[in-house]
């Protein structure tokens, strides 16, 4: 019997600092034991429990795409005791990983459709995974539109990659910041307003929204206004989690457990849950 509570060892290969305040760091990890790596197959939207012995565990969405086979990427925002410790990691350190956990964005369903991805702040991690995945399987999908907002230009994740995407003609990327800043050439305004302004077509379209709760709260009505059906709008939920396998009860919301029934839910599914996500 395998024991899902036991993390497997991974080595921190590279660390990238995402913002000036150094609150956001991206860790690329490789499996210490190659056999563990072979067993580890995942899809965009899944998450892992990131484990530091003696400090505890914290769940993070996987930011790399399954098509990127030589590393596993996590971007960690420093908010509490475990994330703080993660920020002290150095390249070469060993960490523990449990996963992949949870479900994933329904990339099979999306096939042949246009996909609109709406992200905010540092919740862009699994969206990156999804975008990279779809770009790698570009022929399977129609138009790809990405709307990504951050408080200020410094707080966008994966800036180099965003710059590359902007040059591509098979992906439309709209970056927006909350308030105007000198030298900024992208859009300005909160994500919900930008979505309303851009008014992406609903035709054969799927939407994935991921970001801070407040952004989601105000973006969903805009999507409804634009007449995107609930069944075609997906989001990824966050809650405190511990076990990651539907036992510990912490991430229970309605009859669902975010760790095994989610984290990805359609708005239609969430509509059936009495408790507000």
């Amino acid at each position: 019997m395998s024991n899902t509570y036991i993390p497997v060892n991974m080595r921190v290969e590279t660390i990238a600092v995402e913002d000036k305040e150094k609150a956001l760091r991206t860790f690329d990890l490789v499996f210490v034991d190659e056999a563990d790596g072979k067993r580890f197959t995942y899809m965009p939207g899944q998450f892992c429990e990131f484990s530091l012995l003696g400090k505890g565990e914290s769940p993070f969405g996987i930011a790399s795409s399954p098509t990127e086979t030589d590393f596993l990427r996590f971007t960690v925002n420093r908010t509490g005791s475990v994330t703080n410790e993660i920020h002290y990691l150095r390249e070469g350190d060993t960490v523990g990983i449990r996963g992949p956990l949870g479900n994933w964005y329904p990339v099979e369903k999306f096939k042949g459709g246009n996909v609109v991805i709406i992200g905010g702040g540092f919740a862009f991690t699994t969206l990156r995974s999804l975008i990279v995945y779809m770009l790698e399987h570009r022929q399977d999908y129609g138009d790809l539109t990405v709307i990504y907002g951050a408080r200020n230009p410094d707080l966008f994740l994966y800036k180099d990659e965003l710059a590359q995407w902007q040059k591509r003609d098979d992906l439309t990327l709209h970056l927006t910041i909350d308030k105007p800043v000198e030298g900024w050439t992208g859009m300005t305004g909160f994500v919900p307003a930008v979505v309303r302004e851009l008014a992406p077509s609903t035709e054969n379209a799927w939407v994935v929204v991921c970001g801070p709760p407040i952004m989601i709260k105000f973006t969903l009505p805009v999507l409804a206004e634009l007449r995107f059906p609930d069944a075609r709008v997906y989001t990824s939920l966050e809650r405190r989690m511990k076990c990651g396998i539907g036992k510990c009860g912490r991430c229970n919301i309605g009859s669902k457990y975010i760790c095994i029934d989610g984290p990805v839910f359609s708005m239609e599914e969430l509509g059936e849950i009495p408790e507000t996500p």
Partner: peptide, 24 residues
């Protein structure tokens, strides 16, 4: 009732991970 918390206890590179009853 079976909800639980998971905690690490230890210092100096030695310790244990435990689960403990918790309550909603």
């Amino acid at each position: 009732c079976h909800c639980f918390d998971v905690q690490d206890e230890g210092k100096g590179g030695k310790g244990k991970r435990i689960r403990i009853w918790d309550s909603c």
